[in-house]
Simulated scan of single mutants.
Amino acid sequence: MFSRGSLLAGAATVALFLAASATPAGAAPAPFEISSPSPAVLEAMQRDLGLTSQQAITRLANEERAMTTESALSAKLGSTYAGAWLNGDASQLMVATSDAATADAIRAKGAQPVIVSRTLDQLNAIKDRLDQAPAEAKTGASLWYVDAPTNTVVILAAQPAATAALVAAAGADRNAVRVVASNEQPQPLIDIIGGNPYYIGSSRCSVGFSITKGSTIGFVTAGHCRVAANTTNPTGTFQAYSFPGHDYAWVAAASGNTVRPWVKGSGGTNVVVKGSTQAVVGASICRSGSTTGWRCGLIQQHNASVTYSQGTVTGLTRTSACAEPGDSGGSFISGSQAQGVTSGGSGNCSSGGTTYHQPVNPILSAYGLTLTTG
Rank of each mutant, 00 (worst) to 15 (best):
L73N: 02
T102V: 14
G26Q: 00
T372S: 01
K109P: 10
F209Y: 10
G340H: 00
E33W: 12
I192N: 15
T370E: 00
A44K: 08
E63V: 07
A170Y: 03
L60F: 01
S331I: 06
G83K: 04
A165F: 02
P37A: 09
S21Y: 05
L298E: 11
A20F: 00
G268H: 07
G218I: 09
Q46D: 06
S79M: 14
T13N: 04
A108E: 13
G5N: 14
I126D: 05
V180Y: 08
G293S: 12
P160V: 07
V179S: 11
S351K: 14
P39D: 13
S202Y: 12
I34T: 04
T307R: 13
E63M: 07
N230D: 10
L60C: 01
A170Q: 02
A141S: 07
S74Y: 11
L166S: 07
A44N: 01
A15C: 13
A253S: 11
L60Q: 00
D247H: 06
A44I: 07
H224P: 03
L166W: 09
V280H: 02
H302M: 05
C225R: 08
L49A: 10
A176V: 03
P31G: 04
T342V: 09
I285G: 01
G368N: 02
F32M: 11
S206C: 05
V263W: 04
R226V: 08
T370A: 06
E33H: 07
P29I: 03
Q92T: 15
E43Q: 09
T354L: 15
E64W: 01
W144T: 06
G5Y: 09
T312P: 01
Y198A: 06
I285T: 04
Y199V: 15
V14F: 09
S202D: 14
P188R: 12
Q278A: 06
L93C: 05
D48I: 08
A125S: 10
R226N: 09
Q55T: 13
G315P: 00
G236D: 13
V251W: 04
N196L: 12
Y367N: 09
V227W: 06
I106A: 02
Y198S: 14
T292V: 05
A44Q: 01
V179R: 12
G10N: 11
M1F: 13
R226K: 15
V220T: 10
P197T: 14
C225L: 12
G208F: 05
L123H: 00
S266M: 11
D99L: 11
T342F: 08
A157W: 12
F219T: 02
I333R: 03
C296S: 01
K213Q: 14
R260S: 10
S290T: 07
